[in-house]
């Protein structure tokens, strides 16, 4: 008798789950029809990488190679060059292989000048793998990215031509260690 009710109960639970699944016919679908409808992405989504400029329009990147070191998959490569007019460093070439990049954002965290930034653009598909290797002209944008008024040389104690040490914002002049005066 007990097993008879167990069978009845089993049949009931099966019918119930069939009914519950059938009621899904009237639910809205969870899928976004992607190419027609773009999914909303948060502003700090980690997508295509850009190199930004400072508010004066100069390249922010100082070719320190920190991003390249931080990158877990080693997909950034660049070479340092020096600008003849003021001695400012800049990358001679800057190359990111997006077929390797996993968009972890560690390069952005490592960068001392906020030059390298990840953007919410995720549409990076190519038919040819070689097209996924982005050169500097593909990476460099003309804007400031997420940090609107950050300018590395204005806050760092770095001396370049036209700006000595201690002339930058929030900086005091270097201490003259040879003098006895306070």
């Amino acid at each position: 008798m007990k097993s008879f009710f167990a069978v009845l109960h089993g049949i009931w639970t099966q019918l119930r789950s069939i009914g519950m699944i059938f009621m899904h016919s009237f639910r809205p679908r969870d899928v976004i029809l992607y190419p027609e409808v773009k999914p909303p992405v948060p502003p700090r989504y980690r997508g295509r990488i850009v190199l930004t400029r400072d508010p004066d329009g100069d390249e922010r990147c100082v070719a320190c190679n920190l991003c390249s070191v931080a990158c877990p998959v080693g997909c950034i490569s660049l070479q340092k060059a020096e600008r003849p007019e003021d001695g400012r460093w800049y990358p001679e070439f800057f190359r990111i292989n997006f077929s390797r990049c996993m968009f972890c954002g560690l390069c952005e965290e490592a960068c001392p000048t906020n030059a390298i930034q990840l953007t919410p653009d995720y549409e990076l598909c190519e038919y040819d793998r070689q097209n996924l290797v982005y050169e500097k002209e593909h990476l460099l944008i003309s804007g400031v990215g997420k940090y609107h008024d950050y300018n590395f040389y204005r806050v760092a104690g770095m001396a370049i031509k036209g700006k000595g040490k201690g002339e930058a914002l929030n900086e005091s002049a270097p201490i003259d260690i040879k003098s006895l005066l306070p």
Binding site: H24, S25, P28, R29, D30, V31, L33
Partner: peptide, 8 residues
């Protein structure tokens, strides 16, 4: 199956 799994 898509309909019943809330997809297309």
């Amino acid at each position: 199956l898509g309909l019943w799994q809330d997809r297309y």
